[in-house]
Nucleic acid binder design. Structure first.
Length: 331
DNA sequence: GTTCTTACA
DNA sequence: TGTAAGCA
């Protein structure tokens, strides 16, 4: 098949096909004597894959990486690799989606200012822009954390042996799940679910569980342990779920990794995916030393300021569980 | 007439 | 990625 016919069939331009070839997405295209390209079924298949991934918003560079490693491996790993890249893409888009939304909001705020101020509110514009920029930076910088965890296979052993990082692990999780009191069919989200140990307990209570984690290996382990769970790649600053999706959100041993400036953003994200009267249950360590204890306090303050009623318990030495239930405001 | 490469937008 | 030029 020559290039024109192929382009017509796939609904793309010949230029695009040549461009893909030039960028290494179509290796080994055969030439006729007159130097015309001839495409075989394999090429067609690859091109269809490329078009699909482009439609998902993947860059040509990313697609090349997906496809390159593909031919070298077997069918199972191909599937996994594809899945991994698509999940990465999903997480990326979740962040961009939030960014777009924030831009729309900023625009509205600027219009409002313009409406009600006498003079041009240039100073206010500038301040708005500064805030927006900081948010973007925070989200953006997170990307560097991705893929850091190659030790997921040992994770479940690790939580039982490292008593400093995970004091009283099983008891703590059981206590957390008990505090939540999931009702049959409720929809819950576990932030930083790891291998799903907390989510699994809530699953057992009859809840419909979803979870996010940054580590692909964790996701893999979690899926094999709890096939019923909906697990996605993501982080606390851009959660890849729709607004008001969950009756409750839980998290264990995850918030401690947040920097102080990140906490408000993470909580705003949490609140976004939570239903209006949803509850929150966060379990974590409180190191007595300065840094993270302020994090715990900030967490509590934020929740109180946002009309949650708090119940704080300590299921184990050095661990706290915060159950936050919204105070119903009659309107 | 079709495709190719190269250059520019 | 579109468009155009100059070739084979």
């Amino acid at each position: 098949m020559k290039i024109n016919e192929l382009a017509r069939k796939l609904g793309i331009s010949t230029r695009t096909i040549r461009f893909y070839e030039q960028n290494g997405l179509l290796p080994g295209v055969i030439r006729e004597n007159n130097r015309y390209r001839v495409f075989n079924d394999e090429d067609v298949w690859r091109l269809q894959t490329i078009i699909a991934l482009r439609e998902a918003g993947m860059t040509v560079k990313d697609i090349r990486e997906v496809l390159e490693s593909e031919s070298a491996h077997h069918a199972v790993t191909d599937r996994e690799r594809l899945r991994y890249y698509l999940e990465l893409q999903q997480a990326l888009l979740a962040g961009q989606w939030l960014e777009m939304r924030r831009m729309a909001e900023t625009t509205s705020q600027m219009l409002e200012l313009l409406q009600k101020e006498q003079e041009l509110p240039l100073q206010e514009f500038f301040e708005l822009a500064q805030q927006a920029r900081q948010l973007r930076e925070l989200r953006h910088n997170w990307r560097d954390h991705w893929n850091f965890d190659q030790r997921a296979e040992e994770h479940d052993r690790h939580v039982h042996t490292d008593h400093t990082a995970y004091p009283g692990y099983d008891e703590v999780l059981t206590h957390t799940a008990a505090s939540v009191r999931a009702a049959q069919g409720e929809r819950g989200l576990d932030l930083g679910t790891g291998t799903g140990n907390l989510a699994g307990r809530l699953l057992a209570q009859g809840a419909n569980m979803a979870g996010i984690d940054q580590s692909r290996e964790m996701l893999k382990q979690c899926r094999s342990k709890f096939p019923a769970m909906d697990v996605r790649m993501g982080n606390l600053l851009s959660i890849p779920y729709d607004d008001r999706s969950f009756d409750f959100v839980v998290s264990s041993f995850a918030f401690r990794y947040l920097a102080e400036q990140e906490l408000p953003l993470a909580l705003a994200e949490l609140q976004r995916v939570l239903k209006p009267h949803g509850r929150i249950c966060i379990t974590d360590t409180i190191p007595e030393n300065t840094e993270n204890s302020t994090l715990a306090r900030l967490l509590q303050d934020w929740l109180e300021q946002h009309d949650y009623m708090l119940q704080r318990t300590s299921p184990y030495t050095g661990v706290f569980t915060l159950l936050a239930v919204p105070i119903r405001v009659s309107s």
